[in-house]
């Protein structure tokens, strides 16, 4: 009653400050959630109960020796192709950004060809390399009499796949790597050079580690794509996961259950790759603070 005016004036806000905040009600969200859950349950049930899915057959084959061998080939092929594509991709990206016109033109030409023709065509071409070069080695350049190894012995399905996928993938990887380099500012190169680093040192210690942050997400994308794309070796009588599955259902006609087996395994492999990406990115993001430098203009 006797409170001075200066204290009394903001009493409105003091009173408001004591009030409880009521939670927001979103009835429609609950309805939507309910609908989605019910539909999911129905879908799951229909898949799980459907006898055509042949779950017992799935169970019988999921860990069978032939399937596991197929997985082994798929993983080996994917990892080797990705390694080849990464190394070659870095080389091509460096060539493309080089001052030397011939080098950068050669890199562009590579990109143009390997990105411009279908993967399956390249794969079949490599598999049939013997039709172009019956002998590998000096014979390729100097004619049959120069001698070489019998192409049909060197190029089996795995070599053809390694070359086909690896070289094709390298074209895509080179663009991803180049994008990573572009994302690292010119100032970083200049700082490295002004310290007296050579070109290779600058590339290895300054550019690549920073570019990797940008390179990893699209590269994992390519890796995941490659996991599934390797199933194309079924066209050149390969022995990967899908080929094994096809081989089995060609005998027992259980097409759907065996495709389920393949799908489940591809999902597992891709999930593992995604998990790896998560840890890799966490490591690469060291030192990367989302906010810009405090106290610096701009």
């Amino acid at each position: 009653m006797t409170a001075p005016v200066s204290v009394k004036a903001p009493s409105g806000i003091d009173e408001l400050a004591t009030l409880r905040i009521a939670p927001v009600r979103r009835p429609w969200q609950w309805v939507a959630t309910g609908v989605v859950l019910v539909m999911l349950a129905l879908l799951l049930a229909s898949v799980a109960m459907n006898p055509n899915m042949g779950w017992p057959v799935v169970g019988r084959h999921l860990f069978s020796a032939e399937i596991l061998r197929g997985i082994g080939w798929t993983v080996l092929l994917t990892v080797l192709c990705m390694a080849l594509a990464t190394v070659l991709g870095v080389v091509i990206a460096v060539m493309r950004t080089a001052n030397n016109r011939v080098l950068s033109a050669a890199a562009s030409l590579y990109l143009w060809f390997f990105r411009g023709t279908p993967l399956l065509v390249q794969l079949i071409l490599w598999f049939n390399l013997a039709l172009v070069f019956p002998l590998l080695g000096p014979a390729v350049f100097f004619g049959e009499s120069a001698g070489g190894l019998d192409t049909n012995h060197v190029i089996n399905w795995f070599m053809a796949a390694l070359l086909g996928f690896g070289l094709h993938e390298a074209a895509y990887m080179s663009e991803i790597v180049r994008g990573g380099f572009l994302a690292v500012g010119r100032g970083q190169t200049e700082a490295a050079e002004s310290l007296g680093m050579t070109g290779t040192q600058t590339l290895r210690r300054v550019l690549l580690p920073q570019a990797l942050r940008v390179i990893v997400p699209p590269s994992v994308n390519q890796f995941v794509n490659l996991f599934k794309a390797t199933s194309l070796v079924a066209f050149i009588s390969g022995q990967d996961l899908l080929s094994s599955v096809q081989h089995i259902y060609a005998n027992n006609y259980q097409v759907i259950p065996l495709l389920l087996v393949a799908s489940l395994w591809y999902l597992v492999l891709v999930s593992l790759a995604t998990l790896g990406q998560h840890y890799l990115e966490r490591r690469l993001n060291r030192g990367h603070v989302p906010t810009t430098a405090k106290g610096a203009k701009g």
Partner: peptide, 14 residues
């Protein structure tokens, strides 16, 4: 042998 300091620092962020 020649030290250089840039307007934008250019420290290695990683």
């Amino acid at each position: 042998n020649i030290g250089m300091v840039f307007q934008n620092f250019n420290l290695f962020p990683h």
